[in-house]
Structure formats: C-alpha cells, structure tokens
Design a protein around this nucleic acid. Structure first.
Lengths: 236, 236
DNA sequence: CTGAATATCTATCAAGTGATAGAGTTTCTG
DNA sequence: CAGAAACTCTATCACTTGATAGATATTCAG
C-alpha cells in the first residue's frame, strides 16, 4: 500500500519508496538526492542529465524514477531538501534574529540586530561548504523561475527579505511593511549576494583567489559601514 | 574566397556568409541573431534549441550552421552583438562618465558623477527594452561562465565596475585601485541588479506589477541615499 | 522459512537534438 | 547573359535523453 511520505509525489503514479513498514533504500534515496543537489547546483535543469546523476549516485537510471517519479520530481525534492537543511544551518542565527522582531527593539538596537543578521547570513553563504553547493541552485531557480520557485521563494527568500526589511524599518521607526525599507533590504541582500552567486565575478574583480574569513571580514566591514549609514530617507 | 568578417569563426571550417563582394543575406544573419538573442535571453544554452531559433528567424536549420558554424558560434555571436549594441546605448552616458576620470574630480564632484553614472545605468537596465532582453543572457553567462564569458566580462562587467570603483575611490581621495572602493562598487552594482536580473524577485517583494519610471525613481532615490552615505571606511 | 512488499537492474523505446550532405535557387560581377 | 559565388532548402544521420517494461534480487513480518 506504500503511503507517500510527504507531499504528493507529482503524478502519484509511482508513490513508491520510503513506505511505512520497512525501509533500507532510504539510504539510496539520500545518495541520489546528494548527487542531484550537486548536479543541479552546477548546471541548469536542462543541462543536467538524469543519467549523470544516477552514475554519480551509483545507481541505475530507473532507480531515480522509482524514488522521485521523474526528473522534475527529483528537482523539486532537491529544493525541499535545501529548505530543510537551510533551516538547520540557520537555526541559531534565525532564532537570534527572529526574536528581536517580537521585542520592541528600535533605533540603534535594531541596527545592531541587522548587523548580526547580515553577519550570520554572510557567514553562512560564504563560510558554509553546503551553501557553496546550494546557492547556485537557489539563485538559478529564483532568477528564472522553474518548478521549484515557490518552495524556495516562500521558505528562503521571503522570510529573509522580510526579516531584513523589518529591521531596517525599525531603524527608521516606520511600519513593518515600509516600502523604502523593502527597497533598502533588496539592495543590501543583493549586495551581499555579489560574493556568493556572483562569486566568480567578485573574485576576478577583487583579484582574490578565494573568499575566506579574511575576505569575508572586509565585505562585512563594508556592509557594516553601509548599515551604519542607513538614515531615514528624504521622502516617501 | 569569402573572407571572414571579424574574429575567427570557431573552427573556420565554414567561414561562410557576409563575405566581401556582394551580400544580401546579411539581413538573414541579423534575423537569426535577433531570434537567438531573444531565445538565449529567455533560457540557458542547453535549454535553447537551434531548431526553435531557426523557426523564430523563419529560416531553415542548416542556415544557422551556414552563418555561425555551430550553436556555440551563434551563442558567441550573440555576446558580441550585445557588447556592440550596449556600447551604442551607453555612448552618451559612457562619455559623460568616462570623462571625469581624466579630470581631477574628487570629493563631492566625484560623488555627483557617481550618481549620474548609477542613474544612467539604472535607466538603461530598467528602462531600455533591449536591456530587458540581454540582461538575463549576460548574467546567466557571467554567473556560471560559458563560451561567452570573456567577451562579456572584458567588455561589459569590467569597465563598469572599474568606472564605479574609481569614482568611489575618488570620493575617498584614495588610489584608483583601492580594494575597499572595489568592494563598495560591487555592493552597489549588485544592489542595482536586484531590479533587473532579480526583477521577478523584486517585483514580488515590492508588490509591484512592473518596474516603470515611478518605481525606478524610488530605487534610484534609495541608491542616491546610499551614495550620499559613502564615507571613508574605518580601516583597510 | 516463506512470501509479499520493496528495491534494483538490464534492455529498450520514442522523441528530440545538433549537425551534415548535397541539391536547388538567388544574386551579383564581368 | 553567362557563370561563379553566395544563399537556402529538403532529407537524413548519429547520438543523447527521459522514461517505461518487465525480470530479478533483496528485505523483513509472521
């Protein structure tokens, strides 16, 4: 009877795998997912072939279909996995960051919080080995929306932007959904993204050979300066 | 004998077309190029099929090979075309912007220049109908380098970053190649890019239905504020 | 230990892809 | 008006790709 684990498996035609009773191929499923994550991180949906993934995962081609229905299902599963793992990674920083929103922190307190959030985000994006892998996937999908857009937008992008926009709004002592704060948040985040999705460009521009703690520190310092300089806009 | 027009045509096996003496299919070549530009703008290299391009250009498949050798040649030709047309579009702003570098403009003068450049760039990226088309192409290629990376990097990215970095350096009265200025330039440019390559994300975030003159003005206003806030960094 | 559910494999398919061969058609030079 | 060069087309190939069929192996509850 094999009940589907989580969400509906695309066409549900082959709910397959990871049933209730006994499992063992769960490991296989994970192996495939890892290979897919790496592959889709490195190239576009079309450019990645299911065959190569199956080879990397050391399974036979049909095994992919068995576990994920079709290529798109696998792709979607990757997005879900990223969201899950991201939550794990940012748990600490996330808690530390979401809290002050409930609190009545404004002005300088918000500014400090914002710096902390940016630092955490920067540290994750640049420092984490896994992020290195997902980032291309996430941004490729976000920039030209595909089957996984909604998942990533709702669970990664939106919460992130929302958080930062609110903190900026608090610095200005404005309502949480202030449009100017949103713009500012976008500018800030995309700036940071220069050093991850845009890493290859930044490396060349800066004549760095890699972005380590030292380089990251310089970037964060620049971002801090930018945050320090955030003052209430002239008009709305 | 048909001598090749410009650069070596990939394998030069089929230098073809656009020879010296008489031509007429130059128009066809252009038609193909336009179709390819649009196609490669909308999807990745792999995702675009030469057939679809040929259909859009209303020619037969082999015609593409005749003019551009192979798919990659066509792709490269697109990059070259973008560079050319970009030069045309930014001629005024470019001249207006490159001049002050020779001049001994510093401090506030440089700041004003920087604003002008950003405004010009923003206006082009968001306003121009063509930019709408190229931007995805350019950034996809720049973010994960393909056959056209060098062309685009050297002719679009590098000059742009260089210009802006220098202007920032002048605001600080620092040497032209100041690393902090470079970082700042990257942050600034990527921020602006939020509203073009990252357009779909920004639209959703801002709850805008499009980015017209009104929206652009708000973005530029925010960028201006950011430029106004550029003060010499604490340390190097 | 047995048998049903699960897991995985070896072909094999049908569709689509980039590219070429080679024959016609048009276009301009002399 | 030749006739050579440029242009464009109709097949057709060789190959890749995602997916399925159907047999086989594995696993675990009882």
């Amino acid at each position: 009877m094999s009940r589907k684990t989580s969400a509906l498996r695309k066409k549900a035609k082959v709910p397959a795998a990871v049933s209730a009773g006994y499992r063992k191929g769960e490991e296989t499923r994970q192996r495939i997912l890892d290979a897919a994550l790496k592959a889709f991180g490195a190239a576009s949906f079309k450019a990645v072939t299911t065959r190569r993934i199956s080879e990397a995962a050391d399974v036979s081609l049909p095994t992919l279909q068995y576990y994920f229905g079709d290529k798109e299902g696998l792709y979607r599963a990757c997005a879900e996995t990223i969201v899950e793992r991201y939550r794990g990674h940012m748990a600490m920083a996330g808690t530390r960051a979401a809290a002050p929103l409930k609190t009545r922190c404004v002005g300088e307190a918000a500014r400090a919080q914002l710096k902390a959030v940016i630092e955490a985000l920067g540290g994750f994006l640049v420092g984490s080995k896994e992020a290195q892998l997902w980032t291309p996937f996430v941004h490729r999908e976000l920039r030209d929306p595909g089957p996984a857009f909604e998942i990533l937008y709702e669970n990664l992008w939106r919460p992130g932007v929302e958080l930062i926009a609110r903190l900026i709004a608090r610095i200005w002592d404005r309502p949480d959904d202030d449009p100017d704060a949103r713009i500012r948040a976008l500018l800030l985040i995309f700036g940071l993204l220069a050093f991850q999705p845009g890493r290859s460009l930044s490396l060349r521009t800066m004549r760095w050979s890699s972005i380590g703690p030292e380089e990251l520190a310089k970037v964060l310092s620049s971002l801090d300066a930018q945050i320090d300089a955030i003052a209430a806009p002239v008009s709305t």
